[in-house]
Computed example of a mutant assay.
Amino acid sequence: MLTGRRGFIAAGASAVLAGLAGCSGTLGGSASGGGTTITMVLTPGTPSDIRTRYEPMRAMIEGELDEVTVEMQVPQDYSAVRPALNSEQAEIGMDDVTLISNPDLMDVYGTTVTGGSAFYFSVMLTNEDSNITQREDIEGRTAAFADRLSTSGSIFATYALKQAGLDVGDAPDGDPVDFTGSWSNHEVALEKLGAGEADAATTYGGNGMPHISSSYKSDFPQRVIDKSSALDVLDTESPKFRPFWWSFPIPKQPVYARKTWDSEYKTQVGDLLVNSDKGLIQQYYPEDYNEADLPFTTLRDTSIDDYQPVIKRLNNLGIELGS
C-alpha cells in the first residue's frame, strides 16, 4: 500500500528494546500473581510529561478492570512502536502512522476524543516580530519540526511546504533543499523557535495554542474554531508565537491492540475505552492534574478510511513504512 524510497519501521528485536524508554517489568500481557500486566506504548515525547498526561487513562483501566496492571512505555521515536507490538513486547498502541504501516496487524478500538472533538490540527508558528506570513516565506529560512514521523509535527507540514512550491528534497527522512530543517519533538521545536534557533516551528494545535496570543483568534480559520479541542488553552503560556498556517482537521490518534493478543482483557479494555466519558475518567485524575493536558475521554468509531489523508501525504513524500 505504501511505497517509496525509505524504510522507517523495519527493526530487529535489539532496536525495539533500545527504542522503548524506561522498559522494565512484565511485558506482553503476561499473567502475574493471578492478574495480568498490559503494556501500553505511548506516543513519543518526553517520558515524564507523556506518562503524566496518560495517567488518568492508565489508572482508569486498572481501577475498572480486576487484576490488571498497566505499564506505560515511551519510545524514543515512532519507528520503535510497531516492532514492539510485532515482537509481543506490548499490547496497545496509539499512533496513526504505526496503524497505517500495516492495519492488518492491529485491531482498532477507535479514535480518541477530547473536548468533544475527534480532530486536531497541525500548525506552523513564527515569532511575533517575524516577517513570515505564508508558507512560501520559509524559503531560505530554518524550520523546526517534531519527530520525522509525527503526523502533525512533520508529515502534514512538509507536504504543505511542498504544495506551496518549495523543494523539500528528501525531507522528512533527509535534508530539504529550499530551507533548513531540524527534527526532534513537539516541545523542542517550540523551544528552538523561542530561542531564535529556528525561524518557524511546526507542532500540533494542543501544544501550540497556549503560545498563541488571543489577539490572533479573529484570524483563525473557521475550521479551527469549529473543531479544535484546544481553544480553552489559548494564550496561557509564554513565549508567544504567531500562527501563519493551519491544516484541515486531522483525525486524532487511534487506539489499537495487536491482533495476536489473545486474552479476555483485550475485549474488556476496548469496551471500557469506548464506553468511557469525562465523568468516569475524572475520577482517576491524580492530585493537581492539569485537565488541559488530557489526551483522552472516550473513543469514536473509526476505520483506516479516516486516515486516508495521512496515507496520501506519506505516499507523496515517498515514505515507506515497511512491509
Rank of each mutant, 00 (worst) to 15 (best):
P243R: 01
E264M: 07
P47F: 10
M209S: 05
M72H: 03
V310T: 14
K227G: 01
D288V: 09
G174W: 08
T43V: 14
G115F: 13
L27A: 07
K278I: 03
T46E: 11
I132F: 07
M1E: 03
L161D: 00
A31E: 11
T302K: 03
L85P: 01
E237N: 11
S218M: 08
L231N: 11
S229K: 08
F248N: 14
A10F: 04
S48W: 11
A195F: 04
G110R: 09
F296R: 03
Q283L: 10
I100E: 01
D306P: 00
A59I: 02
W246Q: 06
P176A: 15
T112G: 05
F241K: 03
D293F: 07
E67H: 10
A80D: 01
I100V: 15
M124T: 08
S303N: 14
K312R: 12
L317M: 15
P210Y: 05
T267C: 02
G196Q: 01
P83T: 03
D104P: 02
V68H: 02
A10K: 08
M72Y: 02
Q73G: 00
Q308T: 13
G34E: 10
C23S: 14
M209Y: 02
T3A: 06
P210Q: 06
P172A: 09
T36N: 04
I132N: 04
Q282I: 01
P176W: 10
G208Q: 05
D104H: 07
L125W: 02
G205E: 14
V310R: 05
I50W: 07
E136G: 13
D173F: 04
A230I: 01
I38V: 15
G4Y: 12
S303A: 07
F241A: 13
P47A: 10
R313K: 15
P210C: 12
Q253L: 05
G153A: 03
D232V: 05
G174S: 12
L193D: 05
G25S: 15
G208C: 09
D95W: 09
G12P: 09
A195G: 15
Y54S: 05
T52Y: 13
G63W: 09
Q89H: 14
S30F: 12
W261A: 02
V97N: 07
F8S: 07
C23R: 11
D306F: 09
K278W: 04
I9W: 00
K192R: 15
L321F: 13
P251Y: 06
Y216H: 14
R148Q: 12
E191N: 13
G29L: 06
P239K: 06
L65E: 01
